[in-house]
Nucleic acid binder design. Structure first.
Lengths: 282, 282
DNA sequence: GCGACGTCATACCTGCCGGGTATCACCCCC
DNA sequence: GGGGGTGATACCCGGCAGGTATGACGTCGC
């Protein structure tokens, strides 16, 4: 199957509509219909059930949507990494993706240590929202990522543990009544009156419904906390990033957070290997 | 990039020769040259250095070889799994791949337990040589595999531990002088006069050089041991598969072998999930 | 050192197929 | 029952993938 056909199938599966899919693909509707029909004929499987309102996915169509996305990511990754490996200069650089505003202490230490290594290459640090890291790693826009278990989906990546934060704190606006507490539980934090937990964007950029403010990165998050609009539980190590607008209270029953370095398992990049070796020595 | 182009690049990279690559692809050499040139132009990168004897890979070419194979596997997996999901009957089946002749006790127990579950689907068990399992899982010919850590490469798969074998034994031909020993070390096993460790095929089917006999699966292996042509260290649990031609001696310093159930991390298959749930309860 | 050979690149042609426009068949709903 | 919407079909056109013939350019052997 050609990637063009995969893109067509994924577009139709996502739009549930030939016309909109064609528009998104920048082609007319009839060629799209024909291409999908041809794919279905070759696979010997109906992918969509045509209704007067658009299309529904069959089981096979649902499978091809998931698998096709993964395959398209892999193709995009191949292209991007090749282009980068050929980079203008002979020094291929590495792209590390981290959450905007996440605790930078450990990462800075890692990058400093790596830069001191013989044969170290330039590392571009890219910051983005939490849900964007995994797709970036999958489609080759990034080579390594800083992820946090158990919050990020680390399935399918190789990992090296950087830090394990057993202690966690609740970050509150300075002067909030709860700031005087000696400790809190997760359940208590979730029920603080007038201070809901924030909402993070999903993979597609949309937000789940709820009362909390919408935040896209940790910088926004901490600002919202300082503004008295949100409360959040974070690893103890973020205390170094806080300022006078914040207060912290230990949370006694929070899960252990592990900060890990993650990379695609088939990566054979010497640069990634060097970074991992450095990380394993810290 | 189209999969056709990826196939071309991978073929040339593997053959190190335009003519042979073209033959393998079933096309003439000139269109292949043109297609590769076009890819290079679009990527803005030289993939191959042309020599009078064929071609060498550039760094970018090496990257695209590795990444391109992964991408082609993903595309093939998408196609295969879709075709299977659409299967003639409404009962999509699951393909489990295991080593030929590997200890079947645990697997049999797992499959029996799964078959008793409500909603269980048919499980096709496919046996193959050890090095073939990983590619089969990657390109969609299989949905789940039985792998053995630390010998198999489990990078990039999700895992569920089935058994942990702490005790391991050296399998010898019955009547061999060493069979009388009370215990052995790994180093001693490697040095048994006249009984080298066997050689397994690599991913591409070729064998590493050395003295040991060439074996492709556990059945052949145990036969070679019985014939006095090889010796091997295996988990204690294989004792159930041995017959009178074999003798076993405990190996005191062998690494722990873990038998795991492995599947592609993005798998959303209900059938795989059910099998994993069953495994986790054993 | 010069031809023979083998490499990959180039030139040119052809037929297929991907894409466009126009239109149809069908369903839903007012 | 007609209008607006869906996807399917018919037909045409241009680009490009593939083929053959040939060239440019090394290496090797005599």
């Amino acid at each position: 199957m050609e990637t063009r056909e995969l893109r067509y199938v994924v577009a139709v599966a996502e739009e549930r509509h030939f016309g909109r899919a064609a528009e998104r693909l920048g082609i007319a509707q009839p060629p799209l219909s024909r291409a999908i029909a041809q794919v279905e004929r070759r696979l010997g499987a109906e992918l969509f059930v045509r209704t007067p309102r658009g299309v529904e996915l069959t089981d096979a169509g649902a499978v091809l949507l998931v698998e096709g996305r993964a395959a398209l990511d892999a193709v995009a990754a191949a292209e991007r990494r090749t282009r980068r490996a050929a980079g203008v200069d002979g020094a291929p650089s590495l792209v590390l993706v981290s959450k905007a505003g996440a605790s930078s202490e450990v990462v800075a230490k890692l990058l400093d240590a790596y830069a001191a290594e013989p044969g170290a290459v330039d590392v571009d640090v890219v910051l983005c929202g939490p849900a964007q890291q995994e797709p970036m790693l999958r489609d080759g826009r990034a080579d390594v990522a800083i992820l946090h278990q158990p919050f990020d989906d680390t399935a399918g990546f190789d990992l090296e543990v950087l830090v394990t934060d057993t202690a966690q704190v609740c970050v509150l606006p300075a002067g909030h009544p709860y700031a005087a507490r000696k400790s809190l539980t997760v359940a208590e934090v979730a029920e603080i009156p007038g201070l809901p937990l924030p909402r993070w964007p999903r993979r597609d950029g949309s937000f789940p419904s709820g009362r909390g403010v919408e935040v896209r990165d940790h910088t926004q998050l901490l600002q919202m906390v300082a503004l008295g609009r949100a409360v959040v539980v974070l690893p103890d190590s973020v205390r170094t990033d806080l300022h006078e607008g914040h207060a912290t209270v230990p949370v006694v029953d929070a899960p252990t957070v592990t900060t890990v370095l993650a990379w695609p398992p088939h990566s054979r990049s010497l640069a990634v290997a060097g970074l991992v070796r450095t990380a394993s020595r810290l």
